[in-house]
Design a protein around this nucleic acid. Structure first.
Lengths: 346, 346
DNA sequence: GCGTTTTGTGTTAGCGGTAACTCCGCGCTT
DNA sequence: AAGCGCGGAGTTACCGCTAACACAAAACGC
């Protein structure tokens, strides 16, 4: 990086003084109440006056102050979204779905990254509450149950993604992890694989827990022995997956022919580690991921994975917030994962 | 997707009545001004009183209303970020960098997707202005110069990423596209490639324009003839890149041995199209992308590409906003791309 | 023609904070 | 003893907007 270009003064930008309701009123020769009525389209205003006000608004470039509006109306038309890390490709689609839904309803989205750091996650939730967001969508919360519950009580509406609400006053949008694990394990067994590795996610992630127990249950019900040394845990990244599987391969316990990963990123790391060790995917080890992020279909071998409807989850999350605002009692929703068979586990 | 789970009443969540400044004051037996002073840590308050107020805040779970605060102070401690599409892997890193920088300073981020739709981009900018964000970071704006300039005047501070400000009152953070194109073209020539395709981005994207002219200039200075039929344009997605290159391959003009893409996603599509046509990368066609998104190193063949420091751009964007707030005159900054040589163009 | 509604608009009072000023009492000069 | 400075509060007004009520003029009913 290097600096270049020219300096830019800002004198011209500092709006001499923000145009207010009252300015418009003065210009149009009416009271500010009338302006408010025109802007919000409620109350009675004669056509003639409305036109005059409209023109004044136009000329002055009046832009209602949402802060003041929110203060009187008791709602901000803003919704907070908390994600562990927006650079994890699982989340942008959720956020996009959420933003689209919010947008359709004239709402704004405030985004916070928890950064796999409980303190920041906590602070983010508090901060959003301070900003009086009308609701929060919290993706894959890492906070312990009781703390999460307490923090959510200061929000008017909350939706959790990938986490049971437990004691928390929230609606949950879940993925059917046991089902997903069952599908994955059965698929591998169907392909003749019998020694399976489970590459799990971070232990503080609830969904990592759900997926691991789903894996164990599925293996058990299929009559497959599970070697505890083949149960790994790592951060949800390619690097961590690579490291974990490399380590396993370099140990004595390198005999396995199938691997189920917590997420696609980890699966990618696993595949690279396996290749690096001179083994082939899927010939020596078949790999199944989870999430179906974009990249899954683009790598080679392309990744067999459990597809999760991320966009729809995000979209539904916002609509659920709205439903809560209306006083409705939306129920938890569980999304069924779908196995997308590609090359890594045909 | 299927519905399940239990209904959740919200009776317990609706905070009976939000705790205000005045409530705390009453509980502590002081005036609300004193509460304010304790919260903000300014003004004089005796240790004893401070302690009393602290306790009251704690007990009541008081959370200052940022709206009211913003209204009196004339700033929101919120910054808006507009991106074309958060699901394009180029942007999450920028957003993450920005959010981290904002976070460090106690700021909140409001996110808007322009969705490759000018109307929505416009509306997003207006909406953020209505929310009185203290500044906007606008990534790859697609709006025409004059309109962009006008919309930005209603913001107190603006930083553009990947776009020259032109008449707009904003600071720009740019990538040195001519340099990047030059590096890419020279690299291909160095590898003996002489017939190059340029897979450009959307025509309404400014950076697409910069990169195309950079490509043309580089080719010219290298004495390479440029066939206009080898100059393509497409949306910045894998699908579009695939389609564009497939189309080219199925036409008569299929003789080319190198390709420079507007972005990595397009490059991926191109590679898949080339493979699909029975050709090999890099043997028959060498491909160079741009951005160095995560996936670039994970696919096969791994992608040679121009690395852009996305996180740092996002981080710097926010710091530049702060600098503008302080009345500074930050200059435009140009980031130098770095060629990361991988398998697709060794 | 005189109440009664309807219509169009203004007035008032906050929403929850904080800036700016005021006020009181005490110790310290001189 | 009068004056001053200062620590530690409280008062007032206002940020920009809107809910709720008030009220005059016009339209209506019989």
């Amino acid at each position: 990086m290097k600096s270049g270009g020219r300096a830019r003064g800002y004198a011209g930008t500092l709006q001499s003084q923000r145009v207010t309701n009252a300015d418009v009123a003065r210009a149009a020769g009416v009271s500010s109440m009338t302006v408010s009525r025109v802007v919000n389209g409620n109350g009675r205003v004669s056509d003639e006056t409305r036109e005059r006000v409209r023109r004044a608004i136009e000329e002055l470039g009046y832009q209602p102050n949402q802060l003041a509006r929110s203060l009187t109306q008791g709602r901000t038309r803003t919704i907070g979204i908390v994600v562990p890390d927006i650079t994890n490709p699982f989340f942008p689609e959720i956020v996009r779905g959420a933003e689209d839904a919010a947008w359709e309803a004239g709402y704004t989205v405030a985004l916070a990254n928890a950064v796999e750091d409980q303190a920041r996650e906590r602070a983010a939730l508090r901060n959003l509450a301070g900003h009086r967001v009308d609701g929060v969508v919290h993706c894959s919360p890492r906070l312990p149950d009781h703390e999460l519950a307490e923090l959510l009580t200061s929000h008017t509406a909350a939706v959790l993604i990938n986490r049971h609400a437990g004691p928390a006053p929230a609606v949950s949008l879940m993925v059917d992890d046991p089902l997903g694990a069952d599908i994955a394990v059965k698929h591998l067994i169907g392909a003749g694989r019998t020694r399976l590795v489970h590459l799990g996610g971070p232990t503080r992630s609830a969904s990592a827990g759900y997926r691991r127990s789903g894996f164990l249950a599925a293996a058990k019900s299929a009559g497959l022995p599970v070697d505890s040394e083949l149960l790994l845990n790592c951060e949800p990244t390619e690097e961590a997956g690579y490291a974990a599987v490399s380590h396993l391969l370099s140990s004595s316990k390198r005999e396995f022919d199938g691997l189920v990963a917590y997420n696609d990123l980890g699966a990618l790391g696993a595949i690279n580690a396996i290749k690096h060790a001179g083994l082939r995917v899927p010939d020596d080890v078949a790999v199944i991921g989870c999430d179906d992020i974009r990249i899954a279909s683009l790598i080679s071998p392309s990744l067999t994975t459990l597809r999760i409807e991320k966009y729809r989850m995000g979209h539904l999350a916002i609509q659920t917030i709205f439903e809560l605002q209306r006083g409705g009692q939306p129920t938890d929703v569980t999304f069924k994962p779908e196995l997308i068979v590609r090359e890594s586990a045909p």
